[in-house]
Structures are given as C-alpha cells and as structure tokens.
C-alpha cells in the first residue's frame, strides 16, 4: 500500500519440462479376471437362494392380480390413517434428534485427531460398530418386548439406529478436517473443549446437519414399517390391512407414505445442497 515500489519483477515459471510419459494402463487380464469372479459369485448366489427367472415369471400374474386388487384405493380410509401417519413422522423426528444428540460426544471420542488415546477411541469404536450391526427392526422388536407395544419402542429403535449412523458418518468427517485450526487453537491456549468449539465444530457442522437430514429421510421410511413389530406408527394399519386382504386400504397407506417421503426427501435435499 504505502510501501515504496519494490523492484519485484513478476516471476515466470520456466515451462521447460520434458513431456511426461503416458500412464501405463493396468493389466487387462486382471480386469477380465475380476469380471469373471464377479459373475461367477453372482450366479452362485442366485443358485443358492433359488433365485431363478422362472420364479419371477410365475410371480408376475400373481403380482398383476394384487395390483388389480389395490385399485381403486379406498379413499374413505384416509381419515383413519392420517393420524398414525403423523405419528410415524413424529417417531422419526424424535428418534433422529435424540440419536443425533447422543452421536455428538461419541463421534468426538472416536476421532483420533481429537482423542489421541487409542485406549479410548478403539473401545468406543467397537461399541459403535456393535450398535450399527443391529438392524432397526430388531431394535424395535427388543424394545417392544421391554417397553410394550407402542410408539415409544419405535422411537427408541430409531434413536439407536440414528445414533449409529450419524456417529459413524460424523466421526469419519471429523477425521478428515483441516488440522490447521486445531493447531492454531492449541497455540492460543485453548483447552480441549474450546479447541473443539472453535477449531472443529465450524468445520464439521454442515456435514453433521446433512447427515442428520439424511438419517431423518431414512427414518421416515423405517418408521412406516416399525408398526409391523408393534412399535407404533402407520405400519400397524398396513399390517392389519394386509392381514385382512384389504389391498385397497394398503394401497392408500402406501400412497400416503410415498407422498410424505417424497416431500421430506425433497425438502431435506434442498437444505443439504445449500449447506455443502
């Protein structure tokens, strides 16, 4: 600005580099072999679980009959399913929120750029992985057995499911952050919590919110089948309709679920795109 004009000619990098050799393509046979292995594995799987095109063909008329019975949907059923549907979304909201809150400290404890002690990170990661191996419906069945039939069990199931998913995604994001601000905050004399608040949280927040919304999307879908095991929500009515062969009612339930899921997916996608 006010410094005297310094004799600083703009440097030009010398573009005097030899032409680089083209990268050698990876072994062609290796690629063929990989394809072969993949195809063989697939065929073996089909054989073992008895997936055959014939079965599929045989099922199609059955499928057509079912769809035929679904239409026209029973619109008069709509007022009955509206409230359980709302409850489904509420279960998803509660489960996601509580799971996300629980996930924050655990994600921090897993990240080895925050907690350097392996004696902490490894056990926490093991517990986290254990939680993640349990599917949400199994959680729901367990909680129904413990707390009885109703939305509370479903909420708990989704809470644990969300916790596992969000904690895992978040801790991986934490490990990928720029270490510079952490170093700077250490140099400033900040303690661990201040380092996290100023050096980590601002970097991680958009990812966290994005994971939270994504988990919410997944949870709305999951919540609509929780009722199958008695854990509240729309799934109970779906189960009942199917049991009574009221496919026209099942149809309206599916349509409404679809509409809600689409709206939520769209909204959360918009928000997520804004964030990242």
């Amino acid at each position: 600005m006010n410094s005297p004009a310094a004799p600083t000619p703009t440097p030009t990098p010398t573009p005097n580099q030899a032409p680089r050799p083209l990268p050698v393509p990876p072994g062609r046979y290796k690629r063929y072999a990989a394809w072969m292995v993949g195809i063989v594995l697939f065929v073996i799987c089909c054989y073992q679980v008895e997936v055959t095109p014939i079965k599929l063909m045989n099922g199609i008329p059955e499928m057509g009959k079912l769809i035929g019975e679904m239409f026209p949907p029973d619109w008069s059923y709509f007022p009955t399913i509206w409230e359980p549907m709302i409850q489904t979304v509420q279960i998803a909201i509660m489960g996601t929120t509580l799971g996300a809150i629980l996930a924050i400290p655990v994600a921090l404890l897993c990240a080895n750029n925050i907690v350097t002690a392996k004696a902490v990170t490894i056990p926490v990661r093991i517990i986290l992985n254990l939680v993640r191996t349990i599917p949400d419906l199994l959680f729901a069945s367990i909680f129904v057995a413990v707390f009885g039939i109703g939305p509370f069990a479903g909420m708990l199931a989704l809470m644990f499911f969300s916790f596992g998913l969000i904690a895992k995604l978040t801790f991986e994001a934490i490990e990928a952050i720029d270490p510079g601000p952490i170093e700077a905050m250490t140099a400033v004399g900040a303690n661990k919590i201040k380092i996290i608040a100023f050096g980590v949280v601002p970097q991680i927040l958009p990812y966290f919110v994005s994971y939270l919304l994504y988990t919410f999307e997944v949870n709305v879908r999951a919540a609509s089948v929780l009722g199958l095991v008695g854990a509240g929500g729309i799934g109970l009515l779906l189960d009942r309709s199917l049991g009574l062969f009221r496919y026209d009612r099942a149809c309206i339930i599916i349509l409404l679920t679809l509409a809600i899921v689409l709206v939520i997916d769209y909204a959360s996608n918009v928000v997520r795109r804004k964030l990242l």
Partner: peptide, 18 residues
C-alpha cells in the same frame, strides 16, 4: 503461557467457514 504467545502459520490456519 500459550495465551501470551501468538502464532502465525504459513497456511494461516483460520477456520475458513467462520
């Protein structure tokens, strides 16, 4: 002690989103 010592880094080490 660190509080009394400012540090400036080659790569600035700012939180870019803040």
């Amino acid at each position: 002690i660190r509080r009394g010592i400012g540090m400036i880094f080659q790569s600035f080490n700012l939180v870019k989103r803040s």
